Amino acid sequence: MSQVPVFPPLMTGLAAGPANPFTIACDQAERGTDAGLIAWSVSPERLRAAIVLAPETPLASAMAGFIACGVGMQNALGALVPPETAVHLDWSGGIRLNGAHAGALRVAAATDDPSEEPDWLVVGMELTLSLPPDCEPGAFPDRTALDQEGCGGLDPVHILEAWSRHTLLWLNTIEDAEGRADLHREWEGLAWKLHDTVSVASDGTRIEGTFLGVDENFGMLLKTGGTTRLLPLSSLLEDV
């Protein structure tokens, strides 16, 4: 396995070792590090990474960076896993292989005010490479890992490198309306349970409804009963 990932120009790596790359990236962002920093960590069980972004738009629009990172991961896996392996994305950040959870994305920002331009935005990624040794196959049917889906031979560092390349391509497209429209179309083709019944967390509770689609800022349009609710993507922000 490769030891040190090679990232595209304008991106720099920071090995996190056993520490949490998401926490490290948020700390570095608060300290004023340049955009493009990727903190990363690889263990036999999981690949973790987090990228620092410096949006130049209000938070509501800047959250498209979270979507770009998710689509970048799907594109990276799509190019590396066997062709029969389906890779989808949950609206809330989940990464699914053949319908089961195999990882997730998370996000934090310098502000939670949708109208304010954040000084920084950090998107974290975690991918399950293998299940714990004491986990019996089938014990958790909604959970899986790369090695459970015939992808155990993939080098996680190669996945990380591919994620950085594909993510950079999408991040470069969201600066104009045409690029955002391209991202919108790409994401909708990958969205898990679009036009189906979903259960999502909102304000500390879970609500169920029909996932109708997303608005121009990728907020979820959720039909519950006779009402359609808009769940802004910024509602996924974590406190750090």
Rank of each mutant, 00 (worst) to 15 (best):
residue 18 P to N: 01
residue 176 D to A: 10
residue 202 S to Y: 15
residue 111 T to E: 05
residue 94 G to T: 04
residue 54 A to T: 06
residue 117 E to A: 14
residue 99 G to S: 09
residue 120 W to L: 11
residue 144 T to S: 15
residue 140 F to W: 04
residue 30 E to F: 06
residue 156 P to V: 01
residue 220 M to H: 02
residue 123 V to M: 03
residue 150 G to T: 03
residue 193 K to L: 10
residue 145 A to V: 03
residue 232 P to Y: 04
residue 227 T to I: 13
residue 116 E to Y: 07
residue 221 L to H: 13
residue 50 A to T: 04
residue 152 G to K: 07
residue 23 T to C: 09
residue 196 D to K: 13
residue 235 S to Q: 11
residue 154 L to V: 00
residue 117 E to L: 12
residue 72 G to D: 06
residue 2 S to F: 02
residue 235 S to I: 00
residue 238 E to S: 14
residue 215 D to G: 00
residue 25 A to L: 09
residue 101 H to C: 07
residue 195 H to W: 06
residue 181 A to R: 13
residue 49 A to G: 11
residue 47 L to F: 05
residue 71 V to Y: 11
residue 114 P to F: 13
residue 92 S to P: 11
residue 37 L to T: 12
residue 51 I to M: 13
residue 150 G to N: 10
residue 181 A to Q: 14
residue 165 R to C: 02
residue 211 F to G: 08
residue 211 F to S: 10
residue 17 G to A: 12
residue 47 L to C: 01
residue 218 F to I: 03
residue 190 L to V: 11
residue 193 K to P: 00
residue 7 F to W: 09
residue 150 G to D: 10
residue 137 P to N: 09
residue 37 L to S: 02
residue 213 G to T: 09
residue 209 G to T: 09
residue 159 I to K: 10
residue 85 T to N: 14
residue 174 I to K: 01
residue 57 T to S: 14
residue 51 I to H: 06
residue 152 G to Y: 05
residue 69 C to K: 02
residue 148 Q to P: 01
residue 95 I to Y: 03
residue 111 T to M: 07
residue 201 A to E: 15
residue 17 G to V: 12
residue 221 L to G: 01
residue 80 L to Q: 11
residue 81 V to T: 12
residue 4 V to W: 02
residue 217 N to R: 09
residue 185 R to E: 15
residue 126 E to F: 00
residue 55 P to W: 01
residue 138 G to S: 08
residue 160 L to W: 01
residue 110 A to P: 04
residue 67 I to P: 02
residue 1 M to I: 02
residue 217 N to A: 10
residue 146 L to H: 07
residue 212 L to I: 10
residue 173 T to W: 11
residue 216 E to N: 06
residue 3 Q to L: 15
residue 27 D to N: 05
residue 182 D to E: 15
residue 40 W to D: 05
residue 83 P to K: 07
residue 146 L to I: 00
residue 47 L to S: 06
